[in-house]
Design a protein around this nucleic acid. Structure first.
Lengths: 146, 146
DNA sequence: AAAAAAAACCACTTTTATCCACTTTTCTCC
DNA sequence: GGAGAAAAGTGGATAAAAGTGGTTTTTTTT
């Protein structure tokens, strides 16, 4: 289970170190084999263990691409998908294209979301936290207590 | 049953000592295994005994994440969830990201709320006490006497 | 074939975890 | 109510792990 948020720095070569705790979870989930791609709804990246990505990919590919919104999602998810592997120090490279999409520079936030992770620029993440929520809540959530 | 509020100091390394009385309750509730996470509606932290957290997690994970408000709650609850264990002196470490979210520095308030605890910076807690409540009360609460 | 880019490797610095010792508070018994 | 003892809380030291930066080698491209 991938949870927790981690502040990370990206170095000048575009490498970022996966925090040791996350690394441990990933070792069991996918032997360190990851896929990075673009989040279709937000300017952040998605980090999938390879098996989870394979499922997502299968679903996305099977969508009817006569629909414009579908084509957009396919372009982003499939078009940005990049397999990566960790080096001997537990770091992965983030390509310039991906960095550009999510506006990543030095300071990053890596956020565990159960079966996957999201990678944000720190600025974008902090902005998200302060953002007011004006969407109507689904019924299932009205009754949620935590 | 977790009740009562406790003023606590966090040391320079980000460790905080769980008060002995709370520690006793937690020992029976979860053998000292806790999960810290962000409160989605307030800038404070939630402290769950692990079994209670598992229930919340199951509910949150099953929400439909096509909704923006749902994604936000998932990002906060799951994204900040961090399992911690007490050291030999009954202290737990609070990670920099969690401290930052709740604005925790030295002086903290730990508040028992039945099945879980809330952790506030003392300043934020005192501000909350002075805050006027202008929300309309849900029906179930209209009839509550105390 | 040369240059540039990417990957692998190596060494150092910083952080984190664990353990131990001391101080302060609280309870108990006189 | 006070003294002593025990428990709780606090601070610090040390060892291990994690993170960071740089260098070299390999591959790819022009």
């Amino acid at each position: 289970m991938l949870t927790g948020s981690h502040a990370i720095n990206m170095d000048a070569k575009g490498r970022m170190a996966i925090p040791a705790k996350v690394r441990d979870s990933l070792a069991t989930a996918c032997a360190g084999r990851l896929v990075l791609t673009a989040h279709p709804d937000e300017r952040c990246l998605l980090v999938y263990p390879e098996p989870q990505w394979d499922e997502v990919l299968a679903n996305v590919q099977s969508l009817p691409n006569s629909n414009r919104a579908v084509r957009r999602v396919q372009r982003l998810l499939m078009g940005y998908a990049t397999p990566v592997e960790m080096d001997s120090n537990g770091r992965i490279p983030v390509s310039p294209t991906l960095r550009s999409y999510a506006g990543l520079d030095k300071k990053l936030m890596l956020v565990g979301l159960g079966d996957k992770l999201e990678l944000w620029s720190e600025d974008a993440w902090l902005a998200l936290l302060d953002e007011p929520v004006d969407d109507e809540l689904p019924d299932v959530m009205q009754s949620l207590s935590f």
